[in-house]
């Protein structure tokens, strides 16, 4: 099983690729809504890509209030 740091790294890489932002511009504690300039519809898109990538289910109510990459990665890690 990957470590939390590995999962976090994959989340950042995937988010950077999806929203066409340089990977080095993203940090674990960034607010992804602000940093990626995305709305909830795009966040839902990111959620689906993460689920497909990690082969997990992420109920959206568990994502409520989650806005930084580190917490997002920990939610994924809990379901790996």
């Amino acid at each position: 099983m990957p470590t939390l740091d590995q999962t976090l790294d994959e989340v950042l890489t995937l988010a950077a690729a999806q929203f066409k932002v340089p990977r080095e511009n993203l940090s674990p504690d960034d607010d992804f809504f602000q940093k990626l300039a995305i709305d909830s519809l795009q966040a839902l898109d990111l959620l689906t890509r993460l689920e497909n990538h990690f082969h997990v289910e992420l109920p959206d109510y568990e994502m409520q209030g989650v806005s930084d990459f580190r917490t997002l990665a920990s939610r994924i890690q809990a379901r790996l």
Partner: peptide
């Protein structure tokens, strides 16, 4: 003003 106001 959110794109999907009823989520999560």
């Amino acid at each position: 003003t959110d794109a999907l106001p009823y989520l999560p």
